[in-house]
Design a protein around this nucleic acid. Sequence first.
DNA 1: CGTTCGATGCACT
DNA 2: GTGCATCGAACGT
Length: 216
Amino acid sequence: MPLPHAFYDRPTLDVARDLIGKSLVHVTSAGRTSGLIVEVEAYIGESDPACHAAPGRTKRNVPLYGPPGIAYVYFNYGMHYLVNAVTEAVDSPAAVLIRALEPVEGIALMRKRRARGTGKPAASFDQNGLCRGPGNLTKSLGIALAQNRLDLAGAELFIEAPLVDPAFPIAWGPRIGLNVGTEQAWRCYVPGHPCVSGKSTKPKPRRRLVAVASTR
DNA sequence: CGTTCGATGCACT
DNA sequence: GTGCATCGAACGT
């Protein structure tokens, strides 16, 4: 069952932490794809220079001011869609960016989507890399502007607790890819997880949450 | 190993 | 016109 709106109607950092280990699901006519959330970032309010709400209410960022529990999807760098879960009350602009997933359902479909446009065969895509990074996960799940403002408690794009929640460590650090707002440790992730984005400096263990992905 | 840089489109000033 | 909540290939050390 999708998480209720009340889950998102809380302080954004709490929502960010609690989203780790949850399942993000996208259902389309092509099939169902999902993965466990292993990396997120919080963007909180007009006083956060990295938040899209920093310049105040604009045409693009209106979803941030809307009710909690809806998707905020936007297009970036001319080629990537990024998906957020809107948090906190109406008129309190904040959201959690979903940055990486451990693929669970529809892995073949993810590979097919990732291969689209490239000359590479779908089979050449590493499973751990399918949803590593915010641009990669939206491509694998087929999330684009059509999914902007969707109800995350709905039937098409939603977040739910997995059947069996795995145990995992959690770490906080500065947000990635920004020129401002890097002093806040508002990136939350599963340390050492093979699907988390960023520089993989040490060849640490890198264990998955679930040993074998289920399909249904 | 590390860092740089091109692709690519649009919101915002 | 500028600058992105990116990605990965290509380069340098």
